[in-house]
Simulated assay, not measured.
Amino acid sequence: MKTSVVDWGLIPYSDSWNRQTEWFDALVHAKLDGKPYENRIVMCEHPHVYTLGRSGKENNMLLGEEQLKAIGATLYHIDRGGDITYHGPGQLVCYPIINLEDFGLGLKEYVHLLEEAVIRVCASYGITAGRLEKATGVWLDGDSPRARKICAIGVRSSHYVTMHGLALNVNTDLRYFSYINPCGFIDKGVTSLQKELGREVAMDEVKHRLQVEIQSLLDR
């Protein structure tokens, strides 16, 4: 099953949400009607934005409307699982819009696959990352007081078709996480490839590595 990769570059969150929804709805309808469709993996970055998932708690956003304006950020209530997260320049966002049944995957296995792809990308930079029980995403030193998150994951699915996806901190300005309780956690930190390596990392290189890992895991 061919999966195409699309790069939207730096795109406002609302534009990406509209495009995603359009492609998601089209894929669901085509699948139900037995018509041809395309599985796509979208890569992009967003200007400063906070997104609050269906099960998210409003009080995990620590700023009011005026304060949000002051830091040049916006807030969206969206239809994925999970709590609040931040997207911004220097963070690689990946939205696979795919029919999981084409790859023999259930939703839980799919989330595991996304985590695995990011764990492998981190390993390619010499960073040991892993999972944390009852906490979706990818973590460093997850079972220690130094636990810090490098990648958030939040997915929506209908008829085994997915949208939303993952956000990997590459050269992200981590100060923006201090204005929220990321994913609802108040006792855990966040990190980035740049912070862990002590140098800026080429975004195109990370995009390529992530794309390769996701596609090879899907093809299995």
Rank of each mutant, 00 (worst) to 15 (best):
M1I: 14
S4W: 12
V6D: 07
V6T: 12
W8R: 06
G9Y: 00
Y13I: 08
Y13W: 12
D15P: 02
D15S: 11
W17M: 05
T21Q: 14
T21M: 13
E22G: 07
F24L: 15
F24H: 05
D25A: 12
D25N: 15
A26Y: 01
L27C: 08
V28M: 01
L32E: 15
L32M: 14
D33F: 09
G34C: 10
P36V: 14
I41K: 00
M43S: 07
E45M: 10
E45T: 03
E45D: 03
H46E: 00
H46M: 03
P47L: 02
H48A: 14
H48Q: 10
V49T: 07
Y50W: 11
R54W: 08
S55K: 08
G56N: 07
K57D: 09
E65N: 14
E65C: 10
E66G: 10
K69G: 08
G72R: 07
H77C: 14
H77N: 15
G82T: 01
I84A: 07
Y86G: 00
Y86L: 08
H87Y: 01
P89A: 11
P89F: 13
G90P: 00
C94G: 03
I97V: 06
L100G: 00
D102Y: 00
L105C: 09
G106N: 12
L107D: 06
L107T: 06
L107F: 05
Y110F: 10
L114N: 09
L114P: 01
E116C: 04
A117T: 07
A117S: 09
A117Q: 01
V118A: 11
I119Q: 05
R120A: 05
C122T: 01
S124K: 14
Y125P: 01
Y125C: 05
G126I: 10
I127T: 01
A129S: 02
R131V: 01
L132R: 13
E133M: 07
A135K: 01
T136P: 03
T136Q: 07
G137T: 06
G137H: 08
V138I: 12
L140V: 07
D141A: 10
D141P: 04
D143L: 13
D143Q: 12
R146C: 06
A147C: 05
A147W: 08
R148F: 04
I150Q: 00
I150M: 04
A152F: 00
G154Y: 06
G154P: 00
S158P: 05
Y160V: 11
V161T: 13
T162K: 11
T162E: 05
H164P: 07
G165A: 04
L166P: 08
L166R: 01
A167L: 02
A167E: 05
L168A: 03
V170S: 06
T172M: 09
T172P: 04
L174C: 06
L174S: 02
L174V: 03
R175F: 09
R175V: 14
R175D: 11
Y176S: 01
F177D: 01
S178E: 15
S178G: 02
Y179G: 09
P182K: 09
F185C: 10
F185N: 09
K188V: 08
V190E: 02
V190T: 05
V190Y: 03
T191C: 00
S192I: 02
K195E: 13
L197E: 04
R199H: 14
R199C: 13
E200S: 15
E200R: 15
A202E: 15
D204W: 08
E205R: 02
V206Q: 00
R209K: 15
R209W: 14
R209E: 15
V212Y: 03
E213Q: 05
S216F: 03
L218R: 02
L218M: 11
D219I: 13
